[in-house]
Amino acid sequence: MSAVAALWSTSIGKKAVMAVTGIVLVGFVILHLAGNLKIYLGAGAFDAYARGLRELGEPILAYGQALWTLRLILLAAVVLHIVAAVQLTLTSWAARPVAYTEKEAVAATYAARTMRWGGVILVLFVVYHILHFTLGAVGYAPGQFQEASAYRNVVNGFRVWYVSAFYIVAQAALGLHLYHGVWSMFQTLGVDARSNGVYRGLAVVVAVVVVVGNVSIPLAVLGGLVK
């Protein structure tokens, strides 16, 4: 335990925590995408998937137990990721009190430079996303959201064009975050940097697959392919 505390007390340790929690979150995003794409198999398959998440681990586990365990792990990862990010960001902001009059970004990508505010956009999106598709508290006419009908909820939710637009913008932010984040995990955890090209390629694949996969759903609903 003292080793973890020693790590957390250093800037590099906090970054390692961000990388490890990042792995958890990227894993979640990929599994979430796999679930989302079942929308193309029809209402039966999609609703069965939604139900299956809650019945996962039965009969050893109770209904919803596995799902809540995973949710708590995710929540812990999100909290650690954000706490470390905020602490490191404040240190960095304090480190250059007088800005350059002129400063050129020679190597930093747009994705790298927008990690912080992109992260803020993602937090706001996740809050909205939970209020929307998990709780049905926003974005629906009264009585329109039915917890057991995940497929209908998605279709009804995405038929509102500006809700779909917000989801698409959020996915762009997620794509940028993944593009820099996935590559950064390897660098931060000190995996041999001689294979940098491979990690960069992996980051591109993850970002593109997640964004294209997720964005296709609101577009398919708006285009009438999924109804």
Partner: peptide, 10 residues
Amino acid sequence: AFGSCTNMRE
């Protein structure tokens, strides 16, 4: 009083 690296490669 240094900041913290975010792998920007500058």
